[in-house]
Nucleic acid binder design. Structure first.
Lengths: 242, 242
DNA sequence: TATTTAAGTTGCACAATACCACTTATATTT
DNA sequence: AAATATAAGTGGTATTGTGCAACTTAAATA
């Protein structure tokens, strides 16, 4: 009996593979995260709980991990090309009661203005929830509280030395508006003069010529020179008392 | 006929889930990466090619993604607790001919001295290969060339503002040795005086009292104060001519 | 016209690094 | 033994980007 070369051994038991999104925006002077309600069927884990939007990779539909994240973002928000960044992959035997699972966490920054929330097929409702510190005001399904904390850590770390917050605003925007976004995310005041010098030194914004009337002296409007990626500053922010 | 609540729909077709490691060290004044040879059976993809060490998650064995990375690292090198960091997850329909797959890339830094290379069950040979720029001198299987580039990018970015290179040395080490590791990884000279002032300002190293004879003036030996995590410097390195 | 307020600017202080010259310790050469 | 070479290690000024505070400017309002 001749042995046919045995086919390569592929694992028959495979982990569940998902993508989850921490979609963040600034509304009413506070950072918010988009949450969806899990289905209420008792067969589902965490029925009725709030969760980060996400779901299984669709092997037939999604060409890449990033495609999958973009698809889910568009499904929930209608936003097509926001800032979208992979934060981390978290995988373990016990994070999902249905079995060994790996989730791929993406951070999305979008301006709150141009969002039309859509309840997805697998989610009864989608709502903005304000962020208090590292948490949100409702319990989350699975390990989504720690996923949210990871995304917030990433955002707050990068804000110290990048222009990421610009992606939370609609263009054109004024410098006081941009400064305010920094202050909301960092949860501390930012010094006006140093802030503006940083921006101008990198010249990643340009004046539109127009200005916005706000009741007092009008503020000049700016747009980004490059929409695709953030600018890196040579040093971090940090008030002297550190 | 009564409907039983349908069980939650889990995907029946699931991606392959793997972990790959970029294990880096400095030998003979150059950065090296550990590569293994893929099995030569024709049923295997990329038979006989060099590849980053890695493999499928073992759902029965590995409790977490990190556990899996640690297990594979120990299998190949015998090193138990090096610096190990998740770099990124890369997933797509076409990166592995056997089907939709996601790999989880980890970066490991180890001192070359205490390594005993072991050919694993699924790899005929394990060898150090010198790194030239972003590449290695042999073609790699799958998308491992771009994975390697990702790991190198991460290392080089972090070296600009952290003490990561210390994990590439055995303790105790001298400051000229540490400086040399920085220069090898950055592929540019580092200014001695500024370098030392940075180190001392963070005080993450302490003198052992002993010194190493090198032919000329002996160099003082130092050890790390904290083995678990790198130190972050307040600014990046960068020569003025940038 | 004076006042108020937010937008925007100017100038000096300060901290960390770049760069360069110098001193020190050891081995080697004369 | 003294001079020399070389790598280890130190000190001092220049430069850069931020922190901080006072100032000017432009509009709305009293």
């Amino acid at each position: 009996m001749t042995l046919i070369p045995s086919p390569a051994q592929l694992p028959t038991v495979r982990p569940l593979v998902t993508v989850d999104l921490a979609i963040l925006t600034v509304r009413e002077h506070r950072l918010h995260v988009l949450l969806v309600r899990r289905p209420t069927e008792p067969a589902e884990p965490y029925p009725g709980h709030w969760a980060l939007p996400g779901g299984f990779i669709r092997v037939g539909t999604d060409q890449t991990l990033l495609d999958c994240a973009q698809r889910k973002l568009a499904e929930k928000t209608g936003v097509e090309s926001p800032y979208l960044e992979q934060v981390a992959a978290v995988g373990s035997a016990d994070r999902d009661p249905r079995g060994w699972s790996v989730t791929h966490l993406y951070l999305a920054l979008i301006p709150s203005n141009d969002v039309i929330l859509r309840a997805g097929a697998n989610a009864a409702a989608a709502e903005w929830h304000p962020i208090e510190g590292d948490r949100v005001n409702v319990p989350l399904a699975f390990d989504h509280e720690s996923l949210l904390a990871l995304a917030l850590d990433r955002l707050r770390a990068k804000i110290e030395y990048t222009s990421l917050p610009a992606f939370l605003l609609v263009e054109p925007f004024t410098l006081p508006e941009l400064q305010h976004v920094y202050e909301v995310v960092l949860d501390r005041p930012v010094e006006k003069s140093a802030f503006r010098k940083r921006l101008f030194a990198q010249d990643f914004i340009e004046a539109t010529g127009a200005s916005r009337e706000t009741g007092k002296r009008p503020a000049a409007l700016y747009r980004l020179r490059y929409r695709d990626k953030p600018v890196y500053f040579p040093r971090t922010f940090s008030p002297r008392g550190d």
